[in-house]
């Protein structure tokens, strides 16, 4: 694989399609700057600012852009809100479309066939594998991402966090809770 990658990179560089320095910058950005903390900030803001939450659920792409996040993929972001009545979960059944700029790079299981195929057929079973159990009466809604539309789950704010700052709250928001395969951390739980 290494040789195939080098071959393509050399050709693309010689033809002027890419600049190796720009590639390094992209990789570095995903190593250091872009990760689930971006999404966590968005979630924490929505928990503390009702106007922002409304804007986020209405048009997530626009709401997020007001926070100064830069979207590299220019995709259409949709935020879906978890409630006591409904739990949202995100999958890409075809490949692995994923809101990179919000969550960084997808974990291995998100890209794996078992998750991609079972999430739609048996979401409750998949959630159980993640250690997530929901009341029977909670509806589970599965969102299938596409190249154009990516989803961000807005999890429920944990109880016992009244008066917490946005920054404190953001630390509770896990990557999986924004995919819908987990919950935010509980206040007081070891980080």
């Amino acid at each position: 694989m290494e040789l195939r990658v080098r071959a393509l990179e050399t050709i693309l560089t010689e033809k002027g399609y890419i600049d190796p320095a720009a590639l390094d910058a992209i990789i570095q950005a995903y190593e250091t700057r872009i990760g689930p903390h971006n999404g966590a900030q968005v979630v924490a803001r929505a928990w503390t600012d009702p106007a922002f939450k409304r804007a986020l659920l209405e048009d997530a792409t626009r709401a997020v852009s007001t926070l100064g996040h830069v979207s590299r993929v220019g995709d259409h972001l949709v935020a879906v809100e978890n409630t006591a009545q409904r739990h949202n979960m995100v999958v890409c059944t075809l490949c692995s479309c994923y809101p990179w700029e919000m969550l960084g790079l997808p974990p291995v299981w998100y890209k794996a066939a078992p998750y991609r195929s079972r999430a739609v057929k048996d979401p409750r079973g998949v959630l159980a594998d993640f250690g997530v159990s929901l009341p029977k009466e909670t509806e589970i809604r599965v969102w299938d991402s596409t190249a154009e539309t990516r989803f961000l789950v807005l999890p429920m704010r944990p109880e016992g966090t009244e008066g917490w700052s946005e920054q404190q709250l953001a630390a509770l928001v896990t990557r999986d809770s924004m995919i819908g395969t987990g919950f935010p951390k509980s206040p007081g739980a070891p980080s």
């Binding site: 290494e2 990658v5 393509l8 693309l12 399609y17 890419i18 590639l23 390094d24 995903y30 590299r72």
Partner: peptide, 12 residues
């Protein structure tokens, strides 16, 4: 190489 491949797709 996975990172290189990833970055090439974004750049292209």
């Amino acid at each position: 190489w996975e990172a290189q491949a990833f970055a090439m797709a974004l750049a292209l």
